[in-house]
């Protein structure tokens, strides 16, 4: 009773009737359960099935034998993935590339977010807009733009050769470097926005207090600014790392054949080899690897809201 009463106090009037509450929670819950959560069960199911020459190209999970249902589950797809160094390399490679790119994004994004947060109040919104603006133009086309820039005859090589820095074009396209560059470029706004949010909320008098107590600017940064912006850094890094680990477009357009990333392999298994069970098993493994980071992200976000 007391809990219910406390909840009612915390309610907002517009949707506070029990019917309003029900609608507000039920519709999104039903939608997300059906189209986001439950589908994973089907992926897991397919990952335990065998491939078959049929439409769809999987054998039935459940077959009827002498009037009895028999479960036709198999671990073969997972065994295949764990046995084949290609898949393992792709898995580890994805995590490594995503981690390095996340670190680079943080190194580039932090000073930018800090500069915007320290800019004059009237300038902050326009500067933030400049960060977000590229995000509103096609992601695909921007990644493609890098592929033209990084080509052997592309602008960067031409410029470096004209400057005399190099004599022959550097191979940049179709390398892991290009993939990392593409990830940093595409996900930079996701790093800057949460960082900016925490840095902007940082109480300026704390920095003044540190200076007042004798801390030089660098000390103030390490002892006060950086620790207090940790939540923003955590959110930003997770927002970059998680989707980057499963990225398909960037390794496909900028990476070479030896740049193995799990998203690309999965795509190939699914579309080129039509091996749905292996693709599903790969998706399942990736999902398992990412569950902890996703829960962490959810936690940092709800904590940011409370604090």
């Amino acid at each position: 009773m007391t809990d219910a009463a406390a909840d009612r106090v915390a309610d907002s009037p517009a949707l506070s009737t029990s019917r309003g509450r029900l609608i507000g929670i039920l519709i999104p819950t039903a939608w997300l359960l059906l189209f986001f959560a439950i589908p994973f069960l089907f992926v897991i199911k397919i990952s335990l099935s065998e491939a078959a020459y049929s439409v769809p190209p999987v054998s039935d999970f459940l077959i009827w034998q002498d009037g009895w249902p028999v479960l036709q589950a198999t671990w073969a797809n997972f065994a295949l993935i764990l046995d084949d160094p290609l898949y393992l390399q792709a898995l580890l490679g994805s995590l490594r590339i995503a981690a390095i790119s996340t670190l680079l994004t943080l190194l580039i994004g932090y000073p930018m977010a800090y500069a915007i947060a320290r800019a004059e109040p009237g300038m902050r919104t326009p500067l933030l807009l400049l960060v977000i603006l590229p995000f509103w133009t096609s992601f695909l086309i921007r990644v493609y733009a890098w592929s033209t820039l990084l080509q052997d005859q592309g602008m960067i090589n031409s410029a470096l050769m004209w400057l005399g820095v190099i004599d022959d074009p550097m191979r940049m396209l179709n390398t892991e470097f290009a993939v990392q560059l593409g990830i940093v470029y595409s996900y930079l706004p996701f790093m800057i926005l949460p960082l900016y949010a925490t840095l902007e909320r940082l109480d300026g008098s704390l920095l003044e207090a540190a200076a007042d107590l004798g801390a030089r600017p660098a000390t103030t940064f390490w002892r006060v600014t950086l620790p207090l912006s940790l939540p923003g850094m955590a959110a930003g890094c997770l927002l970059v790392f998680i989707p980057a680990a499963g990225e398909f477009v960037i390794p496909e357009l900028l990476g070479g054949p030896d740049t193995l990333m799990i998203g690309k392999i999965m795509w190939q298994e699914f579309f080129n080899n039509r091996d749905w069970p292996v693709a599903s098993a790969l998706a399942t493994i990736l999902l398992l690897l990412l569950i902890v980071p996703i829960l962490l992200l959810d936690r940092t976000q709800s904590r940011a809201e409370q604090g």
């Binding site: 109480d203 008098s205 704390l206 003044e208 207090a209 540190a210 007042d212 107590l213 207090l228």
Partner: peptide
């Protein structure tokens, strides 16, 4: 040294 109005204690 200064005592700030908000106290500015490092949280």
């Amino acid at each position: 040294n200064m005592m700030f109005q908000s106290y500015a204690l490092f949280p």
